[in-house]
Simulated assay, not measured.
Amino acid sequence: MKKIINDPADVVRESLEGLAVAFPDTLRVQLDPAVVSRADGPVTGKVALVSGGGSGHEPLHTGLVGLGMLDAAVPGPVFTSPTPDAVLAGVQAADGGAGVVLLVKNYTGDVLNFEVAAELAGAEGVPVRTVLIDDDVAVEDSTFTAGRRGIAGAVLVEKIAGAAAERGDGLDAVAEIATRVVRGVRSMGAALSGCTVPHSGEPSFTLAEDEIELGIGVHGEPGRRRMPLPPADALVAQLLDPVLDDLRAEAGDRVLLLVNGMGGTPLAELHLAARAAHGRLGERGLQVSRMLVGNYVTALEMQGMSLSVLRLDDEMLALWDAPVRTPALRWGA
């Protein structure tokens, strides 16, 4: 294992300290418990968005804190859910008096710990709504979940719901638009290699030189099957077709396409895949109104990618285009 680290036990803390010095005008970082919040927060009278989960998926969620997206992110240990007290601290750091929407990826630890935190926040008089993200079409149940996993679609939920909160929507309205995005987005990924959690020192799984895992989860959970690595266009088709079939996308629909790297995939390869995905969507009669290509929901140094497709309406499109200023996404602000 080769990693640019000091003590494996200090990776998350030292990474957060680095994030704080890199973006002092955007973020505020506390370490015990670990919470990343807006430097200008809490914003009085604004509905706050809070998300989080195990570290190792950066820039999700800590790199998506700022104007137009999250008000706070709660990072747990690598691939491990944050505790309820940490999530509660995130709620307290974000709450501006208009209530808090919790955006939770569907992993058992996250679901349970965010649920407890929501109850604790409610007992303190903070109105809370919870939206569960479960966009992965690869498998129905997996190592860490009951039901579908939440993967790269989380980025789209956080951006669009974050813009709704920024424009002044109320608590129920922000939760509703987040729920609408969850219902309209589907994702599927593939891994070309495993990843190594710093404290373990061993890859989460191994693949033969010519082998991939189709439908992989972001922690290295198994997918649909292992198979020989096909050419890029064929791999894109095997990821995109199940996404579109499950989404029941129809000719004429406007969509947003996210081509997401898993941490170890060169941008040149992601753009090559974006070319193939854009063409295949066109063949299905779908209008690609917006695209996002890059590493947004990673699994440490895993080689691979995921494809996400969101069916857009006018409101979602306007909210996607609204100003955002975070470490990982920045436009119009």
Rank of each mutant, 00 (worst) to 15 (best):
L207F: 10
S289Y: 11
N106M: 14
A121T: 04
M291L: 15
L70Q: 00
A154S: 07
S193E: 05
L239S: 08
A178C: 09
E221I: 04
L239R: 11
L19I: 05
D71A: 07
F114A: 07
M262L: 13
V157S: 01
A163T: 04
P24L: 06
V21W: 11
T130I: 10
D40M: 09
A277Y: 08
R275S: 13
P228N: 12
L67S: 04
I4Q: 13
T196F: 04
N295K: 13
V243K: 09
A234W: 14
L257H: 07
L120G: 04
R224E: 13
D210E: 15
D210V: 07
P231L: 13
A318P: 08
D32W: 10
T298F: 00
L300C: 01
D245P: 06
Q92R: 11
D134F: 12
V104D: 05
S15L: 14
G264W: 00
A251H: 03
E315S: 10
N106Q: 14
A191P: 02
C195I: 00
M188Y: 08
Q303G: 06
F114H: 09
L239I: 11
R183W: 10
M69C: 05
L310K: 02
V182D: 01
E17W: 13
V157H: 02
A118F: 15
L60R: 02
N295R: 13
C195N: 03
G109V: 06
L64V: 02
W320T: 01
T130A: 11
V297F: 01
V101T: 03
V100L: 08
R180P: 00
P127A: 12
V157L: 04
A208W: 08
V91Q: 01
T145C: 10
I160T: 09
G168D: 12
K46L: 08
V87G: 06
W320H: 06
D210Q: 13
A249H: 04
L244S: 04
S37Y: 00
L60S: 03
I5W: 06
L207P: 05
I4H: 14
A191R: 04
G170A: 15
Q92I: 03
G194H: 03
V116Q: 15
G263R: 00
A164P: 04
G147W: 13
M262K: 02
L307P: 03
M316P: 02
A237K: 11
A164S: 13
V131P: 01
K3V: 10
D7I: 08
A94G: 05
L286S: 01
G90I: 00
G261R: 09
Q30I: 05
T206R: 14
D169R: 15
R226M: 10
L31W: 05
W320A: 01
G53S: 11
S193W: 06
A117M: 09
R248K: 14
V324C: 00
D241S: 08
P266D: 12
